[in-house]
Design a protein around this nucleic acid. Sequence first.
DNA 1: TTGCCATATAGATCACACCATTGGCAAGAA
DNA 2: TTCTTGCCAATGGTGTGATCTATATGGCAA
Lengths: 232, 232
Amino acid sequence: MVQASHDSVLDHLGRRIAGGELAPGTVLTLADLEAEYGVSRTVVREAVRVLEAKAMLSSKRRVGITVSPMSRWSMLDPELIRWRLSSSARARQIVALTELRLAVEPIAARLAALRASEDQRAEIGRLADELRRLGAERRGDSQEYLAADIAFHDVLLRAGGNLMLTAIQSPIAEVITGRHTAGLTPADPVHQALHNHVEAAAAIVRGDAEAAEHHVRGYVEAILDEVRSVPE
Amino acid sequence: MVQASHDSVLDHLGRRIAGGELAPGTVLTLADLEAEYGVSRTVVREAVRVLEAKAMLSSKRRVGITVSPMSRWSMLDPELIRWRLSSSARARQIVALTELRLAVEPIAARLAALRASEDQRAEIGRLADELRRLGAERRGDSQEYLAADIAFHDVLLRAGGNLMLTAIQSPIAEVITGRHTAGLTPADPVHQALHNHVEAAAAIVRGDAEAAEHHVRGYVEAILDEVRSVPE
DNA sequence: TTGCCATATAGATCACACCATTGGCAAGAA
DNA sequence: TTCTTGCCAATGGTGTGATCTATATGGCAA
């Protein structure tokens, strides 16, 4: 658990940088930040250290604290992804994240088909059934559908047994939720996408790596087409 | 720039956790760490904050600082990847990282074929030529080959224009270097792998996304087979 | 047995002091 | 004028003591 003061300074500063308000090259000083946030040096320093660890800032004696060029940032950092999702770069970040999903999810599905435990296979099958059922009942925009959708992707990524692939679960969940909250999920799910979910689940259950990879790629490609068509 | 004291404490503590010496559930206190490393609270606190940001530690009043379960860690964090590569989990980490490459590199190649700038296409072509030349001269184990190999993957990932995909460049470079340093790269490169590099480059140069993806997948699959055969 | 409360504990924050580094300026040399 | 040298002041880095705050825990009472 982290405290309010540190957390809020870190979060606010992180957002300002991620959102471009503090452009790369901008120089700050500890004294400035102390005064601005009205907190002690300790708090500011610790926040700066964390942002330094994400390669968003770099501090040098006699110079100050400089905002690093975006190309250096640890873009896979979940916190940074969240900040960018809540910034004006949101649309671009969603596309980038979906491209990452297009890379990761099919491979995770392949691994899941090979390595998932019995419990995980059962869980994936169950969740796919639920998605299908809710879809058939035209409840694709319900809370239950959202929960099942998130759980489905969560198990899928975890079942692959690769913690690095699992690591993008939380940003994915956030995007799915965001899409739902924005009212973009239709009550009547797109037939092909739902079909791919169900087929992917079936393939994982029976251990068919090729099919699992193929069907997952199918639905992520559909999502990618969709998010690319959203204007920035 | 970060200072010696902070850096070394962070690095050492990070390694101990990443390497499993400090198992999840282990409870530390600031006072312990202060005494152990012989530095002030400030330094320890900042190191702990950074590890907290990577979800490797969590601190709670009246309890202390607890090592978090591995499933929570930000496994895509470059620093954490480096720590794991230098721990006893090295072999497993290399396999996991190669599975990630299998996901990411083909997609990056596809995007590169679609989006690379003229300069980047030229650079990729040039690097592939150099790899082929050095390979033909049986200099696959030379420094030049290593440098060209790293540069090739670097441009490939960057040319896709997705900063999240680019972000795994440095761990990949580290693995390639590690493989080279360990003397695992033959003077006479495996023909098929080299061929796939050259074909992938040609495909990117001419903007053929399908072929680029296919050839990159080809060589990453070969690498994956290889690293999986290494005993832990 | 259950629930409340006092208390000790450990992190969170603050304020201050001093150190180490170094960018930039000024003086002097070429 | 241009370059070198050396000093100075600014700024982050580290250390320390004090105080605040949340909370795990044990003891007491109902």
